[in-house]
Computed example of a mutant assay.
Amino acid sequence: MNEAEKREFLSQLVDNVQIYEERKENGQWLKSIEFKLPIIEKEFTLSLDNDAQNETVCLL
């Protein structure tokens, strides 16, 4: 994939990305990522702002 194809692919998957104005002390700079996933009926947001995250591992 060239750079233009990569950008187009990501724009189809990612709806919104929020970043902090300044990097946190722990090095974190991403606040949250919202995805456009048609297979999920409700809004899916991955928040990196807290420790209350659920992880799921799937074998495809």
Score class of each variant (00 low, 15 high):
Q53F: 12
E5V: 06
V57D: 07
F44L: 10
V14P: 04
N26R: 00
G27A: 02
K24I: 01
E22L: 06
G27Q: 01
L37A: 00
N54S: 15
D15K: 15
K36Q: 13
E43L: 04
K24W: 02
K31F: 04
Y20R: 04
A4Y: 12
Q12P: 08
S11Q: 13
Q53W: 11
R7Y: 05
A4M: 14
M1W: 02
S11G: 10
K24Q: 12
L37D: 05
L59P: 07
K6Y: 00
G27E: 01
S47E: 02
A52T: 09
E41M: 04
I40R: 07
E34D: 10
R7S: 06
A52V: 07
E3S: 09
E3L: 09
N26A: 00
K42S: 15
Y20F: 10
V17P: 07
Q28L: 14
F9T: 11
D15A: 15
K42M: 12
Q18L: 12
M1Y: 01
R23S: 07
E43W: 01
L37S: 02
K36N: 13
D15N: 15
F35P: 03
L59K: 12
K42R: 15
L10I: 01
S11F: 09
P38E: 08
R7W: 03
Q12N: 15
Q53R: 14
L13F: 12
K36I: 10
P38T: 03
F35K: 08
L37V: 04
D15T: 12
S47W: 00
Q12I: 10
L30S: 01
I40A: 06
N16I: 08
K6F: 00
I40W: 08
S32A: 13
E25F: 05
D51F: 04
T56Q: 05
E21H: 10
V57N: 07
N2A: 04
Q18K: 14
N50D: 09
E21Y: 06
S47R: 02
E43M: 05
D49Y: 00
E21S: 13
N16F: 11
L59F: 12
N16D: 15
E41W: 00
I19V: 15
K36Y: 09
I40E: 07
E22H: 07
L48Q: 03
N50P: 03
V57M: 06
K6E: 02
I33M: 13
N2D: 12
